[in-house]
Amino acid sequence: MVEGLITLFFNLALPLLLLVVGFLVGTIVERRHLRRIRAREAELRDVLAFALRRIPEDLEVSAPNFVAGSAVISVDYFKRFAASLRGLIGGRLGAYESLFERARREAMVRMKEEARRLGADIVLNVKLETTRIQAGGRNATISVEALAYGTAYRRGEGDGQIH
């Protein structure tokens, strides 16, 4: 009887509890994170970022600085479950889309923050890279690392141009 209850607990109640906790806390964490990202993006609006490979001819810039920003973001227990269900029928995995979005925007914000620390206000040749990471041991949890990097300049000072 007791043994049966314990088995029931581990096979049913515990995963269910993890799902509920994962869903509630995960949702709050994600919402907060997105809010923080939006606030910092607004604050960094005057640091421009472009994927241009060359400095536009009509732009005078200062000496270059290499800048980069990265973030490793993990999904919660509920999303992993939801995604595995989605995997049965196919279609868009909304749960994972927001994961990539958060990682990339966070990386971009960090890159811009570094640029600003160095006194720059424009980042050129920006590249984005995403890598899947197996974090937290054998049961292959899903987390992604996003990396944003580029060359930061201050506008309107001259001398940084490479011909």
Binding site: D76, Y77, A135
Partner: peptide, 23 residues
Amino acid sequence: RDIGAALKNLVGGELRSYTDLLN
């Protein structure tokens, strides 16, 4: 670093230790 990451994997969010390690 993995112990913290395993816990974080329940609720999602940034894995700071991994970000630093990769940096």
